[in-house]
Amino acid sequence: MWRFALKEGGKWVLALFGALLIAAALSALADPGPYLAAFGNRLMAFLSLDPGRSTISGLPAARELAMHGPATADVVLLGALMALMLGLPLGLLLGTGGMRRATAPVIQIVSAAPVFCACLALAYAAFHLFGIRPDTASRVTTLFLPTVAVGLAGTAAVQMALRRAASLAQDSPFRLGLRRLGLTAMEIERVYVAPQIFAGLLESLGEVMLTLLSAAVVAEWVFQSHGIAELFVKSVALHDWSMAAPILLVFAALTCTAEFLGRVGSRVLMRAAS
């Protein structure tokens, strides 16, 4: 187990380093001097935890991140919570047994809606049902609606990961083998199949995180919630690379970390099951 965790830890560090190189390469564009020297400087600065200074606002990028981070953290964390609360039961209900094949086309249709379309549909419903205009700044528009949009995208990702894991577990010969050996179908599902399905979900944690972050970018933009995702879009539009690069690094680090934790968690779960 420790060997596995160390190996995965090594992969995680390498992935973070890769993301750091990309961020440094992007951030170096903001420096007027020779590119390679700028790249080296930025890389060293990132390694000493100094992400630089925004060229537009003039503020340290770390301060901008600290100012805008909490809004995004709220949206992503609450969205993740909603994704788990909705996605887990939905995924288990629709992704296992005979329901999996029957619901497959429906799932394709529902998940075909891009996040920005879902955001606009939410805003339309909020306006017509509750009279809340999306362009008015309130907790509902800057927190609740983006969270629901991110949560819905996350739900789709979670239940998709569960379906994938369930389809793999469904074909395992041990289901029939253990049944014939005398265990009940329910016991096999509970003790052996369920951990595999959850382990599959954990393996896909990186993908779920990517979905949540992508959705956060769009949701913050539509609902004008001033988080780092929205800040990234603005920075890129204004070519503020010294601000866009650390945000990109944060997002990549979150994805790598989720992937690492998911892999280790999956292994721990399977160990616990045995």
Partner: peptide, 11 residues
């Protein structure tokens, strides 16, 4: 290339 895959494609 895996390092790029860790960044949301949209970004």
């Amino acid at each position: 290339i895996g390092a790029f895959a860790a960044i949301p494609a949209l970004l």
